[in-house]
Nucleic acid binder design. Structure first.
Length: 425
DNA sequence: TCTGGGGTCCTAGGACCC
DNA sequence: TCTGGGGTCCTAGGACCC
């Protein structure tokens, strides 16, 4: 028995979720937009076949989409998150190991009986998921994560494999590796693929066979690991237990540019509240906070700025974090810059369970308890009545500020208000 | 007019120490 | 022309991922 690495993902996940809850768009062109309805982040296979590209700004394709009768949806992360949980739960029951890698993707492992293909096993799993969750998945299998990714790619690309491919059972993998373009290899991004192409490396096979020294010199262990994995040596293990999160961030693009410190402060307070709420929900504390902002990245005078402040006593308290973040906005703000995005990142995350409280933190125990209770009260009210019911000072955001989501679908799986009504006649 | 958001890992270089 | 050699820890920034 040998261990096979699995790579499983939901096909066109966001678009499939939308089709699943709305049968009227099944088998039709569907695209999903990023926050702010900015650009296209998912397409149904029908939309792809009609030539709709990924990652393109929505405004450029609006007319074409209408012409082709393609259904447009704003991203509905609450829905996708819920479907994802159900999917992962089912996968976990059917694999020996499982690592949840992203909202729509997991790595897993399973033992292979000598010389035996796992095609039928994959086929059964695929059917089970479709029956229970209503989402089509693809399954790639191989000796390593990089190879299983390639398998998954082939499973999608070549019709006759019908969503399942196992490169691990194939002795001479070279003809398959040759089909994989260099920037389709997992771990090879924009920069590395340019560097490789300049050296005549254009596909996975050529990368596998190139000089290891050359890779190591330029990209160190990171590059070397990818090459070893292509050769079939496992270097990137399955991580079953979710390691503790290292950072939490909240950032958004605005629906129109801002250029005053006052406005920047407003949004930052808003984002700090969202981030500190995430901390409290997960019983976490942070001890360092970064605030950043930038102008339009596509403009000629692109400007970005960021600053970080330490927090001496690890905290999840809104008031303390807001005070720190306002020091930071003062540092990063520059007049006459048309800012279109800002965000906060919390670092040095730790659990609040084993926190050693210093004897003298300058607050006093009564004051500290008071702040904690205040956060609890605000969290409770907002959970019950919607995220923006109560906020801090100037954090209440005017309507036109909000990122726009004009084409949002219902959340019938998590929100009772959205459950479909069935009338008996 | 309008181009996402949230993460991880690695490394180079500075600060500090003996 | 010369300026010690190493080790550790921290941080900013780059590159990548979905």
């Amino acid at each position: 028995m040998s261990k096979v690495i699995l790579q499983i993902d939901g096909n066109n996940f966001y678009a499939s979720c939308e089709q699943m809850i709305d049968p009227s768009i099944k088998g039709k062109g569907v695209i999903v937009l990023s926050n702010n309805d900015g650009c296209i982040i998912a397409r149904s296979s029908e939309a792809r076949k009609m030539g709709i590209p990924m990652g393109q700004p929505y405004f450029k394709l609006k007319d074409k989409l209408a012409q082709l009768n393609i259904n447009v949806r704003s991203s509905n992360y609450e829905l996708y998150g819920d479907i994802s949980n159900r999917l992962m739960h089912l996968l976990r029951k059917n694999c020996e190991e499982l690592e949840i890698y992203s909202i729509d993707e997991a790595f897993g492992s399973i033992s292979r009986p000598p010389q035996k293909s796992l095609y039928q096993w994959g086929k059964d799993l695929r059917a089970l998921v479709y029956q229970n969750i209503g989402i089509p998945i693809s399954i790639g299998m191989g000796e390593t994560k990089v190879l299983s990714k390639i398998s998954n790619h082939l499973a999608k690309k070549i019709q006759k494999y019908s969503g399942i491919f196992d490169i691990g059972i194939i002795q001479n993998k070279d003809p398959y590796l040759k089909q994989i373009h260099i920037n389709q290899v997992w771990g090879i991004g924009k920069r590395m693929s340019i560097w490789l192409k300049n050296r005549g490396i254009t596909n996975a096979l050529e990368l596998k066979n190139m000089s290891s020294n050359q890779i190591k010199e330029k990209y160190g262990v990171v590059g070397l690991r990818i090459q070893y994995e292509l050769k079939g040596t496992l270097c990137i293990p399955i991580k079953e237990t979710q390691l503790d999160r290292k950072e939490i961030s909240v950032s958004r693009s605005f629906s129109y540019p801002i250029d005053s410190l006052e406005e920047l402060n407003k949004v930052i307070i808003k984002y700090v509240l969202m981030a500190s709420n995430k901390l409290r929900k997960n019983n976490l504390l942070c001890s360092s906070i970064t605030v950043f902002t930038n102008t339009n990245i596509y403009s000629n005078d692109f400007f970005k700025s960021e600053a970080t402040e330490k927090i001496n006593i690890p905290t999840s308290n809104s008031k303390i974090m807001i005070e720190k973040s306002l020091l930071l906005t003062n540092k990063i703000f520059k007049p006459y810059k048309k800012l279109i995005k800002a965000g906060v990142i919390l670092h040095n995350i730790q659990s609040n369970k084993y926190i050693q409280k210093p004897l003298f933190n300058g607050l006093g125990i009564q004051k500290e308890l008071h702040l904690e209770r205040l956060d609890n009260v605000i969290d409770n009210i907002n959970t019950r009545n919607g995220i923006n019911t109560i906020g801090w000072g100037s954090s209440v955001i005017e309507e036109e500020w909000k990122t726009s989501k004009r084409k949002l679908s219902n959340i019938m799986t998590t929100n009772i208000e959205n459950i479909a009504t069935i009338y008996a006649i």
